Computed example of a mutant assay.
Amino acid sequence: MNLDEALEPRCTICTRALYADEINRYACHPCTRRCDEQLLELAGPRGLYAKLGSHLAPGSGSGGPAVSGSRNAPVPLRLDVLNLLTAGGPVLGPLETWVRDWEARGRAELNEAGTLQQRVNHAVGTLRFNLEWAATNHPAFDEFAREVSLMHRQASVHVAGERPPRAIPVACPCGAILRVGLDTPGVRCYGCGEQYGHAEVLRLPVAERRAAA
């Protein structure tokens, strides 16, 4: 990358150069739309979060029979799915953390009343309502978008009964080993702080087995 390319305003998520109508944004329009779509698919009575409740029984996420709508799910439960449904789990927990962050900036309002589903719906609603503001004004929008992508992927894997994408160890020039998959939207190196977009991180060399161990 030459100096002129390095100075071009770029999307902090996919790292492509921003178009004229995207200047002064932290994320390009396609990345913002993808984040909005992923949020939308999480919430509501037919959303991914609601569907997780039908995958609590062992085998229900791998082609086996799904649990009925009954509140009395069989025991033992799938703890990985149950964890996704808890208040502090990897779906509602991060959503409400970001609502708190945006609330401190005067752009959202936290509501912890009601059922967990209602809280997810509220969090998603207020985050989507303020998404354009965040894509233009919030310096950590890339972090937010990646967390949304992660929770969407985790929920989708269980609802669709698919295995998580295989993670491959790749080597950053600084020597750090990063584990990425074909669906990794981007990653920041924990060693040197370099931010890689989707295409860039997939171009990194595969780490040797000794280094990846």
Rank of each mutant, 00 (worst) to 15 (best):
I23F: 13
I23V: 14
N24A: 15
R25P: 00
Y26P: 01
Y26K: 08
A27V: 11
C28S: 02
H29Q: 12
H29P: 02
P30Q: 04
C31P: 00
T32M: 05
T32V: 08
R33H: 12
C35G: 12
C35Y: 06
D36R: 14
D36V: 09
E37V: 09
Q38T: 02
L39T: 05
L39K: 01
E41K: 12
L42R: 02
L42W: 01
G44T: 00
G44D: 00
G44F: 01
G44H: 00
R46A: 09
G47C: 03
G47D: 05
G47H: 02
L48S: 00
L48V: 01
Y49P: 01
Y49K: 01
A50K: 00
K51P: 00
K51E: 15
L52A: 02
L52M: 01
A57Y: 06
A57M: 09
P58W: 10
G61W: 06
S62F: 15
S62L: 10
G63C: 05
G64L: 01
G64Q: 05
P65D: 13
A66E: 15
V67Y: 06
S70R: 09
N72T: 14
A73G: 09
P74I: 11
P74N: 09
P76K: 02
L77C: 10
R78S: 15
R78F: 08
R78V: 13
D80W: 06
D80A: 13
D80Y: 05
V81W: 02
N83P: 00
L84Y: 03
L84W: 02
L85F: 00
T86L: 07
G88E: 09
G89E: 04
G93Q: 07
P94T: 10
E96F: 05
E96Y: 06
T97R: 12
W102E: 14
E103N: 09
A104Y: 07
A104F: 07
G106S: 04
G106W: 10
G106V: 03
G106E: 08
G106P: 09
G106Q: 07
R107S: 10
A108S: 14
A108D: 12
A108I: 13
E109Y: 11
L110S: 14
L110T: 09
E112K: 12
A113V: 10
A113I: 09
G114M: 11
G114D: 12
Q117E: 08
Q117H: 04
Q118N: 13
R119L: 08
R119A: 08
N121T: 04
H122E: 11
H122L: 07
H122D: 13
G125L: 03
T126G: 13
L127A: 06
R128K: 11
R128T: 08
N130E: 13
N130H: 06
L131T: 10
E132A: 15
A135G: 14
T136M: 10
N137P: 04
H138T: 06
P139F: 10
P139G: 06
F141M: 13
F141S: 04
F141Y: 15
D142S: 15
